[in-house]
Amino acid sequence: MTTATAAEPELVSGPTAGPFRRFTRRLVRQPLAFGSLLVIVLLVITALAAPLLAPMDPNATDLVARNQPPGGGHLLGTDDLGRDLLSRLIYGTRITLMAPLIAVGVGALIGVPAGLIAGFWGRTPDWLLSRLADAMLSLPSLVLAMAIVAARGPSTVNAMTAVGLAFSPRIFRVVRGATMSVRHEVFIDASRAIGCTTKRLIAVHVLPNVAAPLIVQATVLLGFGVLAEAGLSFLGVGVQPPEASWGVLLRRGFDNLYMAPFQSIPSGLAITVLILAFQFLGDGMRDSLGKELRRA
């Protein structure tokens, strides 16, 4: 989603405007990215205010009103136990948004230190860590996550931790690349010459340079996290009932496909929109990074 705004000269922002202000200004000017940000903010609000927004109790069964089509008392219809699908969708927002955060958090916890080590020291640690990343990347994330769930047992946290592990080589590669590109800058040598410790060098000079590409990658991975959660929950090895995520709803709908095909539409559409939103936001952020931030 390249737009002309990314290349615009900095006439509007005064000399005092920091790179972050310039970044937000460019981001807000991209309709797709800004719209996606709004969608995500609205979904976060939906998740927080679920009890206020949901018309009914998401777990209240009504065996008289099973598999009701949309309309009437139930805007999106009911499932095979007579539960209101709109309310379940609204409550499902909570786990659907939480799950990718767990995955990306775990991925960053492993990928960032590993990437810093490989990028900063190079040589043997870099070779070893890079081979490890290659090995992990030759398995589909879903399969890698399923293997770990098989050992640890199915639950939301186990499944998303496993997905995070599968994401870690992707974060590792971005951090490693960004670290390598600043590693030989003059200011690094200069800081070392005046007696900076390695710890301080990484914290003060390397990390800020890694942050921008890392945040972009994390945003894109949030979208993949949504997909991974939905996939694992669809297979029944992710989010476990009675907890509900959009992936769980989609599976329930699929099991009733011949009875009530409409049940599969809202949750699937919601998942697609959320994935698109993270994708557009990530693209927009990448385009909004100025040269001063776009090193990797």
Binding site: A135, S138, V143, M146, A147, A150, A151, V237
Partner: peptide, 26 residues
Amino acid sequence: LTVSAVRARDIPTIQGVVLTIAVVVI
């Protein structure tokens, strides 16, 4: 096979599937 093995925590089968898929990709 993978899904039923994950549900039943059939580790040898999972190990086999993981290795097979990796060999195919590599």
